[in-house]
Structures are given as C-alpha cells and as structure tokens.
Design a protein around this nucleic acid. Structure first.
Length: 871
RNA sequence: GGGCGGUUAGCUCAGCUGGUCAGAGCGCUUGCCUUACAAGCAAGAGGUCCCCGGUUCGAGCCCGGGACCGCCCACCA
C-alpha cells in the first residue's frame, strides 16, 4: 500500500510511485484474461511485435500510450481485454546484429556454420531479447505479459510453415528465375517494399555500337556502362523514323564483339537520349521484361557478390561494379566509342536494409502471387468491415492493393523460418514435416520476416488450432501502427487473416504520427536526434539535438504518455518537450487537487455513501461540466483523436475543476460541520475525474485512488464513468458561467487600475443572476459588496449588468480614468462593427435567425455597458 | 512522373459539417510565498490565419491559381 502521508507529499513523485503501482496491476491478473466470451464482447489488440533486437524508441512509446489508453478504456467499460504481446525475430536486423558481434570476436557466421550460428542467435536473444518488454512495463502498458509470443516459437513456426505449404498447394507460391532486388551488402534478395529510391547524380554515357553491316553505328545512352557487357540486343521505338530501317539489322557490342539484334519495342522513348536503348536482360528490370518478350538471352555479368562474373570477360571478371565501370569506360575511350557524356540526375534504388545500392539481377527465388488474395482484402475495406484512420489512407491502401505485384518471399539468410521445401535430384518435396527417406536437401533460404508477421493476429492466438484464445479474441479490435508499414505488414495481415483465419484480423486500423526530432529531422540514435522515452521517464540525458543541454527532469510515465498523446496528430509532428512537461503539471495538479479534497474529508465519509447531490450552485455546475467532459473524452478516444482527448481532460481538470470548482467550494470544504454536502460532491467528482483520466495517466490516478476512502479494488478495474444526462444543468452552467466572467472582469479591472493585490475593494453589485454567487464573486475578486453609501468611481461591465466600484484607497482615480477611456474606445469599435453588420440587408435577410439575434443581443449589451461607463 | 499532407501568436501545435474561431501549452511582461499545488495563482502583451483571385450577407474554414516545406508510391536508359 502507498505511504499514507498525503499531507506531506506536496508533489506527485512518479519515481516513488510507478513501480509499486505497476506491481499491483500485474498481480491483479487483469492483464491476463481468461479466454471466454466472444470477440464482440471482448476487446483485443495485437501489439506490433517489436524486434528482438529492439530497444524502446519514441514510436513504441507513442504507440504504447495509444494502445494502452484504448485497452484501459475498454477494460473499464467492462470488456474482457487482451493486449497480445510478442516479439519478432526480425530476420535481417537480428542476423546483422549478431554478425557484428561475431566480428568483434574475430569470427563470422560462415566460420561458425549454420547450426552453430542459429544457436548463437538464440542465446543472444535469451540474453537481450526481453529488454524491450521491461521497457513497456515502465510505460504502464497493460499488455498480457504472461503470454509472450515469438515468431520463432515452435507453434508459431508451425503456423508459418502450414501457411506456406497451403499457399504452395493452392498455386499461390512458386519458385522462379526472375529479376529481383539484390542487396549485395546482405547478399540476399529483398522485396520491392524494402527498396528506397535516392536521387543520385550519375554520368550518362553515349556509346557507339557499330553496325555489323559496316554502315556506321548506333549510339545508345547509358548510366551503367558496365552492364553493357551483358547486352543482348538494342531496342528502338517501332515508329521512330530515324531507326526503322535498322530494325532487324545487327550491331556489334564493343569490347565483347557479341552480335546484337536491333529490335523494335514500344517501351523505348524516342525522345530520351538517342532513342536507342541497349538491352541488358540480366541486369535491368525493364530490359528483363523486354528480353522475355523477345526471347533474348539473359547474361549475368554481375554476381551476387556485387562483382563482375566470368561472363563479363577476362578483363573485367572479379572487379566490383564501380571498378568495372571505370575500366569499361576507359576501354571504350581507347576505342573511341564514347561520343560524349553528360551529368544525369536520376533516382536509384537502395536497400533500406543495408543501405547499399540495389543490384537488379536474375535469381532463383520463391515468389507469392497476390492478385487473388487481394480481392477479399479490398472488399473488407471498401465495405467498411475494416476502417482505416485517418480515413484518407484508405485510398492509399486501395491503390496499392489494386496494383499489387508478386512478392519475393525468400531471403538468403540463416535466421528465420526455413523454407519447407526439400530437393533430391529432380524431385521436390513441400511439406510442414521433412520428407522421409534419405538424400533430401532442404532449401537453404528463409522466409521474409513479413511473411511470418502477416500471421500475427491469429498465429499469436494459437492458430491453426481452434484455441479458446482464438475463439475469444479473434478478430481483434484495433491495429495501431505507423504508416510506413501499412503495405509491408497491415495489408498482408488482412489478406492472410481472411485467407487462413477466415475473418478480418481487426476492425480498425489506426495509423499514428511519426514523431520527428525537435528540429524536424528523423529521430535516430546515430544522428543524435533520438529521444529515449526512458530518459524522459527517469530523467536521462537530453540528446544533442536539443538546444537546452543537461538531463531531462524525471517526468514520469504519465507525463510521457500524456505528452505523446498530446503531440499525436493525423500528420507527422516534431517532438515537443513542453507537452511532456504539461503532462507532468497535470499529474501534479491532480495530485494536489486530490490532497485538497481528501485531506478535508469528514471522518467516515466513503465513496460508497457519495451521491452526486448538489448542495450549492457550484456543485450543480461542476457536475454538469463533468458530464460534458466525460462525453467529450470518450468520444475523442473512440474516434482516435488522442490529442483532443488529452487536451480536453487537461482543460477540465485545470480550468473547471481546479481553477473554479475547488476555489468555489473551498469555504464549504473547510467549514467545520458543513452540512451542504460539499465534501460528498467533491469526492464524487474527484473519483469520476480519476476514472476519466485513468486511461491517459494511469499511475497517478491509481495512486490517488488508493487514498480515496471506500474505493474498492483497483481503479484500473473500476467502471468507466459514463455521462449522466440527468446531471446536465444548463441553468447552473449559466449562473456560474456569469460569475466566472464577472470575477475575470473584476480581476482585470483591478490589474489595469493597479489596485493593490491584497486590498479589498468596495463595490455595488448592480446586475441580475448573481443571487447565489455574489459572495463567491466578491471573495474571488477580493471585493466587498456594499448596499449603500460610497461614491461611485468606476463601472465594470459584467453579464446581466455591471458592478459599480466605490471610492476607496485601493482605487487610483487617474488610472481608472485611463482604463475607462480605453474601455469606451473598445466598446465604440465593437458597437460600430455590430451596427455595420446589422445594417447589411443581406446579412439580416439571409443569415439564420439565431445568428442575427445573437448579433442584436451583443449590440444591446455593448451599448448598455457604454451607457454605464458614461456616468 | 503520379498521389497525399502541411504553411495559424516568438516556439510546438488545435481549430469538426463556413457566422463569439482568432485558440492551447510553452516562452515573454506585470502582480502575488492567498492555509491543495511556487513544477503554484492572477492578470496581460503578442497573429494582413503563406500569396493572388473567386463563391457567399459572411471564409483559416469552400473553389481556382501560385510559392515554399514534407511524406508515400513509381522499372524511362
């Protein structure tokens, strides 16, 4: 239990609190629900599995805050909630990391051999794999820690292999020799989605290819002269008059002497370069297609190691592509084959994995045909069974799906799901279990990591077995992630979920913001722009990108959650430390507001005896405002408008609860033997506020909850506060609303005339609608009402009339005269504006009545105040 | 080359279906150690809502054009 000395803890201390509170949550077992009920009754989210190599970064923290807010909200709504936890083996990333480690030990993957290497990775994973999960705990994430999945768990592997085999049997998966994106750094194929284009300035070489006939030559333009060693044709546009007579002729490939047929293909753009295109089917995706169409030879001159092969010829074999380029250019120059060169800016594919330039080459790989899987996945979104938020990403999703291409799913790695295919001579065996008999050799490749991630929402629940978990929690509810993996992951989960689990994997996709560094760059550790969420929680060092140095204050998990949610948007945003600070202020504010209420509670008063029965107008007011806040926060969360939810919560707690209600109710709260029920209402409102805030700032609210007399059990398990329409009270809102305005006007007046802060100013309340709030207005504005006597020295307009300030030492006549003039000027300007509008016939005739009436009321109010001021 | 988004106070950002929408937090100024909180309270200054046209009685909000910034997709040598 928490330290009981609320009295002395004048600040909320997250460091002292969080671990203790988390342990209570975890021990409650609520994170780990019994699999019962139907997916409609239950609420589940499958966490985007972090890489086993990963450490918690800002993206995880934001997504953690989002998902936990949703989970906690729905748990409080009485749903059985399960936040499915697990990690991804992350083939490439993990393999690279362990390889680097091996390098420091002076050894290598190859030296160890496949089996030993795999064992090494497993050991490495046991050592480091779970750190990210501990970090999720620090955030307060209520994931089901008791059931942690891993994409290489035995059961998961079984699901992956089964899916592979079934897709193979359906004819969706096939093996083919095709052009792939070869990553020479990784020495593996990668998928189209793992390739990024970068702008590069290259040289465009114009190379003369002599015609076999001896009648001149044909000039082609190329940025990659080294690939010409693999040329097998030259193509021109069929309608290009310059070349039509040459179609069917033969050119001679310089340096090599190969005879190249001159072919016609509409793909060629006559206006580019010379209008003649050298065709290298072995190393250019377009040329590959043209080559297949025209039945051209495919010559591989660049090998998987990124060096020229023997087919490039003796002079060049063994050179890297860059060396080969220089050598080829030099040789061409020697022969006088280079007509001219020019700089050329274009986009070049690079591997996102290794950062190296992609080498397109022909390779024997496994592919997956997507066209048939796409149809139901498109339908699920177009018919609304799956909603994507923000909505405009729906189109992006559909567009990509409609233009989907085969997916290269094999990777030449060792860490991952080994492809369940075995070869023996000409025989091929495909199956989950290895084949019987001897002499079989398994395909050495593993599957793309995203292939296994695609099964995440159902494989984590035990599929293909019809487990209780699967029955209770599939389909899941929300999938929250960054938009960069909408295609890579989300789309594939939808396709595979529909195909194998027989239903959509989730009903809503929420694409959250990417949080950039404060200067707008990408957050990255190596750039010094990465902000570590744990440094924010615990008070670690600020990264170099911050103008301010030193350590972060220990903001605490609630502050980080609040701050991240406040930053989140439909677009990418810059990291903003102030928002985190705002979260900390809120936690502290709520803490102290709670101290005020809880330390003043009459002995014996318990939450269970407390009904929201207003004993004064401010009670009715706060109860009414509370209902509005509850409705707004819930709506914002349900609409995935997290920043709106948290800022509304902030505004309610700060402005309405603390600035006004608690100040208004204080005298009653402090009064000995108060019988107006102030404590009961305050306690009720506090309890509801804690519940309302809990999904956003769970730690501080749970901690305070422990101090609420009669609070039963955990706040985490408490009912979500639904708005009670019976407590809406427009009359009280109006009444207290005008009191608030009056106090603000009076305070503003005091400040303008320089009234001493401590002085009580005499005045006469000359306005209606203050029957129940006059005393409060006087107290909060430091006024004293006098019914008679005193010389009027100023008039302050308030709703429903005005307040006449009476002569006293506190009022400086000159200052007041100045202030009155300023006020009159302002009023005249506003009056002129309103009159102008009302004089406009179009406005009066066409604007809605309510708008016109409001304008008239406003004018009357302004004129009345101006009249008052003239006295 | 297509598509999408952004440009609102010094900074980071809200502004839903056009009419108290010109906002928040931070920063800044001024005054307060008022018995929940100085990580506090109160008051205030600060903005041709990127530019140019248009629609409308009325436009940050709708339409057209332009400028700059960013993201996604894309196999033109």
């Amino acid at each position: 239990m928490a330290p009981a000395d609320l009295e002395s803890r004048t600040r909320y201390d997250p460091a002292e609190t969080e671990e203790r509170v988390f342990a209570r949550w975890r021990d409650s077992g609520l994170f780990h629900p019994v699999p019962e009920g139907t997916p409609e009754e239950n609420y589940s989210i499958a966490i985007p599995p972090p890489n086993v190599t990963g450490v918690l970064h800002m993206g995880h923290a934001l997504n953690g805050a989002i998902q936990d807010a949703l989970i906690r909200l729905n748990r409080m709504r009485g749903k059985r909630t399960k936040w499915i936890l697990g990690t991804d083996h992350a083939g490439i990333a993990t393999q690279k990391q362990v390889e680097r480690l091996l390098e420091t030990e002076g050894t290598s993957r190859e030296a160890l051999g496949r089996k030993a290497f795999e064992e090494r990775v497993w050991r490495w994973r046991e050592q480091y794999g779970s750190s990210i999960i501990d970090q999720y705990m620090r955030l307060g994430a209520s994931v089901d820690y008791d059931e942690e999945r891993f994409t290489l768990d035995e059961r998961y592997v079984d699901a992956v292999l089964r899916v592979f085999v079934e897709l193979f049997e359906k004819g969706y998966i096939y093996r083919d020799n095709r052009m792939v994106n070869w990553d020479p750094g990784l020495r593996s194929a990668v998928s189209d989605l793992e390739v990024e284009e970068r702008e590069v300035t290259d040289t465009l070489y114009y190379v003369d290819y002599p015609l076999a006939s001896g009648n001149g030559s044909l000039t082609v333009a190329t940025v990659r002269p080294e690939t010409m060693l693999g040329d097998t044709a030259i193509a021109v546009h069929p309608d290009d008059d310059r070349y039509t007579r040459m179609i069917g002729e033969t050119a001679i490939l310089p340096l090599i002497g190969r005879r190249l047929k001159i072919i016609a293909d509409p793909y060629v753009k006559p206006e580019f370069g010379t209008g003649a295109l050298k065709i290298t089917p072995g190393h250019d995706p377009n040329d590959f297609d043209i080559g297949r169409e025209h039945g051209l030879d495919e010559i591989t001159v660049i090998g998987e190691d990124g060096r020229m092969t023997e087919h490039a010829g003796e002079r060049f074999a063994g050179l890297t592509t860059l060396e080969a380029r220089d050598a080829v250019v030099a040789a061409l120059r020697e022969e006088g084959r280079i007509a001219h060169t020019e700089p050329y800016v274009h986009n070049v594919p690079f591997s996102e994995r290794s950062g190296e330039r992609i080498e397109p080459l022909i390779s024997l790989q496994w592919f997956m045909r997507m066209d048939e899987l796409v149809t139901p996945a498109v339908e699920a979104v177009t018919d609304g069974r799956i909603a994507i938020h923000p909505e405009n990403w729906t189109r992006v999703y559909l567009h990509w799906m409609e233009n989907i291409r085969p997916w290269c799913i094999s990777r030449q790695l060792w860490w991952g799901h080994r492809i369940p295919v075995w070869y023996r001579g000409d025989e091929t065996y495909v199956g989950v279990e290895p084949p019987r008999g001897s002499g079989w050799e398994q395909d050495p490749d593993v599957l793309d990591t995203w292939f296994s991630s695609g099964l995440w929402p159902f494989a984590t629940l035990g599929w293909p077995d019809q487990t209780e978990e699967l029955k209770a929690f599939y389909p899941t509810d929300v999938l929250s992630t960054g938009r960069e993996i909408l295609f890579l992951w989300v789309a594939r989960m939808i396709m595979l979920g529909l195909e194998f689990a027989g239903d959509i994997p989730f009903t809503d996709v929420y694409l959250h913001s990417i949080i950039q560094a404060p200067d707008g760059r990408r957050m990255s550790k190596s750039l010094g722009t990465g902000v570590d969420p744990l440094a924010l929680i615990d008070g670690g060092p600020r990264p170099p990108v911050f103008t301010q140095g030193g350590d972060f204050p220990a903001y605490g998990a609630d502050a980080v959650r609040f701050g991240l949610l406040a930053m989140s948007s439909t677009q990418d945003v810059r990291f903003n430390e102030e928002k985190v600070a705002q979260g900390r202020q809120l936690a502290n504010k709520l803490w102290n507001a709670s101290r005020l209420v809880l330390l003043r509670l009459p002995a014996g008063l318990e939450l269970s005896d407390v009904a929201p029965r207003p004993g004064a107008v401010e009670d009715a007011w706060i109860l009414s405002r509370l209902q509005a806040a509850k409705a707004d926060v819930a709506l914002a969360l349900d609409e995935f408008e997290f920043h709106r939810a948290v800022l509304r919560l902030y505004a309610f707690i700060y402005d309405e609860l603390c600035d006004w209600y608690l100040e208004l109710v204080k005298p009653r709260l402090y009064a000995e033997g108060d019988d107006s029920g102030a404590a009961a209402v305050a306690l009720h409102v506090l309890a509801e506020t804690l519940a309302l805030a809990h999904p956003i700032i769970p730690f501080v609210t749970e901690e305070i909850w422990g101090h609420v007399p009669g609070s039963d059990g955990l706040l985490m398990a408490h009912a979500w506060p639904e708005p009670d329409p019976a407590l809406a009270d427009p009359a009280a809102e109006d009444e207290v609303g005008r009191a608030i305005t009056a106090v603000q006007e009076l305070r503003g007046w005091r400040d303008r005339v320089g009234a001493a802060a401590g002085a009580t100013v005499p005045g006469r309340l000359d306005a209606s609608g203050f029957e129940r709030t006059a005393a409060a207005v006087a107290r909060l504005a430091r006024f004293e009402w006098q019914s008679d006597g005193g010389r009027p020295v100023a008039t302050v307009g308030v709703p429903g009339g005005s307040i006449v300030v009476l002569e006293s030492e506190a009022v400086d006549a000159d200052a007041e005269a100045r202030r009155a003039r300023e006020r009159q000027d302002l009023l005249r300007k506003e009056i002129a504006r309103a009159q102008g509008r009302l004089a406009n016939q179009g406005f009066v005739a066409k604007a809605p009545d309510a708008v016109v009436r409001a304008e008239r009321d406003k004018l009357a109010r302004l004129e009345a105040e101006l009249d008052e001021l003239r006295i």
